[in-house]
């Protein structure tokens, strides 16, 4: 059986502080690219430099640490842990942070992240008691709590109505304005319009790489 490559001949550089939209039809390799950028997967060949260091050959444990310290994930289906309340969900990345924190400063970080997404009032609520937009805000707060280099958002507005979707994109844009690198995977042109650079994929290769 011939090997199937989800991605091939892909090469691009992301500058610090960019807001990039990765677009493409399903099967174009968006998700695989996202997984590699998020250090959840490794390329079979080629290399990935994150913050000027090659992370291609790192061990599972080292990748876990990078995910924890450098990358904040935002998913289409929010992916909150349903038995934990808002604060506890935001706290999860802190638990796995190797730099030990005491309880108070951990709490401060959580509250700061929650404030940044404008969700001060529902700290003790469970995800099931929140609306989709609120859940996605919690997810963004969780992505922010370890102060990462990159926010990776995979169809962040896919499950939301357009108004709420706009609000979420507004938050992501705001984070980008503060200097954080944001990469959004989407097939929605309206979502992509927030970005200042768009990479379009087709059959595992880059079709268009355009800056606005």
């Amino acid at each position: 059986m011939a090997e199937v490559h989800a991605l091939s001949n892909i090469s691009f550089v992301v500058e610090r502080g960019e807001f990039i939209a990765i677009m493409g039809p399903s099967g174009s390799g968006k998700s695989t690219l996202m997984h590699i950028l998020g250090c959840l997967d490794r390329p079979t060949s080629g290399s990935y430099y994150l913050d000027n260091s090659d992370v291609t050959a790192l061990s599972n444990k080292e990748l876990s640490i990078i995910r924890n310290h450098r990358i904040g994930f935002v998913f289409q289906s929010y992916n909150l842990i349903f038995q934990l309340n808002v604060i506890e969900n935001v706290e999860v990345p802190l638990i796995y942070n190797r730099m030990s924190l005491n309880y108070d400063s951990g709490m401060d970080k959580c509250l700061k992240a929650i404030r940044a997404v404008g969700l001060n009032e529902r700290l003790r609520h469970r995800p099931s008691e929140l609306s989709g937009g609120e859940m996605q805000r919690v997810a963004i707060a969780r992505a922010l709590v370890n102060d990462p280099l990159i926010i990776l958002a995979d169809e962040p507005t896919g499950n939301l109505d357009s108004k709420t979707g706009e609000e979420i994109m507004g938050i992501l844009k705001g984070l980008n304005d503060e200097g954080r690198t944001v990469i959004v995977v989407t097939h929605d042109e309206k979502v992509a319009s927030h970005a200042n650079r768009t990479i379009k994929l087709k059959d595992g290769s880059i079709l268009v790489d355009s800056r606005q």
Partner: peptide, 16 residues
């Protein structure tokens, strides 16, 4: 399973 995936994405090592 889903929770395990989430935790892994957020930086939990296999040992965690």
């Amino acid at each position: 399973t889903k929770e395990i995936g989430i935790r892994a994405a957020l930086g939990a090592t296999r040992l965690d």
